[in-house]
Design a protein around this nucleic acid. Structure first.
Lengths: 213, 213
DNA sequence: GTCTATACTCTGATAGAC
DNA sequence: GTCTATCAGAGTATAGAC
């Protein structure tokens, strides 16, 4: 019990790459289907050795998720600070979120897709951290609404939930060797949110047929 | 081995509610964390009895997913046929997809979130069925593009992947007792896709600053 | 810090009675 | 069609040597 708990400060100090390897396996096979034996093997260790660093399998998952949040938060905060134009800021943050999710680390993916594996207590902690991260997005969107950049009457919460949903789901189909890059995708999302995708004349035709005004 | 394999025709014939109960448990706890004992208990049976109907735990999951696809396909096909205006058709199909995902059956949820539990062979089968379903969406969007309803130059595949992603992710945060209904959410998505959400004047301001034309 | 050896539990699955 | 009884295997976790 004298073992040192990793702190968020140890950004890159993933001793023996335990967390990286675990994240990769959790992403490929899921938390429950990945055994400690496999994780240990990936680290050139034996199962027993892992318990020196993490008391339980869940503790490993939780630490990994903490770092996932840390990673994506850092990325988006940098983007947030790098423009003062609200519309451009939105674009940069969308791209930052996608880069963190689709980049080399699997921790953000595991964070988003393995929360059901958490015990109620651990879930509470992670949800709290996730809410902290999402407050960044609340900030971005509410500012845009207050400034009148977003059309009046648009529900900021729905916009955030649906927008982040579109981004998060990308992780289920993204192919690093495919034609799209994270930025291609991000820019597309941003443009669709800003512009919409439907022709103005088709919009008018639809309005004519389906509203009585 | 003489046991009768359930066919898609048996829409509502879920003997003993095995599939419904399994779907609910898989949704709540995940496939791996749900034991056959729990499923059996939920059906007022004993573990051994389940094997009369499904040879393996995975066979149960696969059958459940088949029905999930059947369910959502049926719902969207009805919506597809119920309007000939392309923009309205899009709205109806979005709402239909969400209703199937968020409605009483958990099968569509399991279909979308438990595919990692499938063996390679089973995965192949389910992906094939899923592709059949998605061809419906390809049809909808490509028709809109050909008709010029969607702005020229918009990537139909990306639009579909991101749009369905936004919809699918709703299942992770939707609260049946909350303020939004599936249709509220669907209409919002549709409107955002059609209109965008940003003010025209803010768009112009952004263009002025970030393009050189 | 890592290894050896092992305890304990639970799981998916099977065989055969009824 | 369901139950009883049970197996073989795998999994997390622990204790203590090195």
């Amino acid at each position: 019990m004298t073992q040192r708990q990793p702190r968020p400060e140890d950004k890159l100090d993933d001793q023996g790459n335990v967390l990286s390897n675990a994240a990769r396996l959790f992403r490929e096979k899921g938390f429950e289907k990945t055994s400690l034996k496999e994780i240990a093997e990936a680290c050139n260790m034996l199962p027993g050795s892992l318990y020196y660093r993490y008391n339980t399998k869940e503790a490993l998952l939780v630490e990994l998720m903490r770092r996932g949040i840390y990673l994506v938060t850092e990325e988006v905060e940098v983007a947030y600070a790098s423009s003062d134009d609200p519309v451009e800021k939105l674009r940069l943050c969308i791209n930052a979120h996608l880069r963190a999710l689709l980049g080399d680390s699997d921790m953000v993916y595991v964070l988003l897709f393995e929360w059901r594996a958490l015990s109620p207590e651990a879930r509470k902690e992670i949800i709290k951290l996730r809410d902290q991260y999402e407050s960044l997005w609340i900030d971005i969107l509410e500012t845009m609404i207050k400034q009148g950049v977003i059309q009046q009457g648009v529900d900021g919460r729905l916009l955030r939930l649906l927008g982040l949903g579109a981004l998060n789901w990308v992780a289920t189909w993204f192919d690093p060797n495919g034609t799209y890059t994270p930025d291609t995708i991000g820019n597309f999302v941003w443009k669709a949110i800003v512009n919409g995708v439907i022709n103005q004349s088709a919009q008018r035709e639809h309005m004519r047929r389906f509203t009585n005004a």
